[in-house]
Amino acid sequence: MTTPHGFDELIHPPTRLALMSMLAATEWAEFVLLRDTLKLSDSALSKQVSTLVDAGYARIEKHGAGRRRRTLVSLTPEGRAAFDGHVAALQALVNQAPLTRSED
C-alpha cells in the first residue's frame, strides 16, 4: 500500500476533516457556528480544536466580554497548507496518480 505525499493522518478522521474543511473555506468562523453546523457538543468540538491548535494548524481568538464574547477559530498558514496537501493526496488516490511514495 502506498500513501500519497501530503496525506495527513491528523486531518483524516471524519470529524477533524469536517472541521478543517469548514475552517479552510473561511477566514475565521465562530466556535458556536462550527459547533452547530457539525452538531457537536462544546466539549467535543473543544477537544478537536485543541488538537489542531497543538499541531499548529489552528488558532483561537477571543473577542468581547460577557454576552458579547465571541470565540473565533481560524486556520494558520501551516494548517491551510496541510489541508491543501491532504486534499491533493486524496485526489491523487482517487485519480491513482503516479505521484506516490512508499509508506515507511
Binding site: M1, H12, S21, M22, T26, T37, V87, Q91
Partner: peptide, 28 residues
C-alpha cells in the same frame, strides 16, 4: 477500498465547505 474512502472524504469536504458558506451567509 482506499479509493472509495478517498472519494467519500472528498465529497464530505465539499459538502462541509458548502454548509459553512451557507451558514456564513445566514449568519451575517
Amino acid at each position: 477500498s482506499h479509493i472509495d474512502d478517498a472519494k467519500a472524504r472528498l465529497d464530505a469536504i465539499g459538502r462541509h465547505q458548502d454548509e459553512v458558506v451557507e451558514a456564513a451567509t445566514r449568519g451575517r
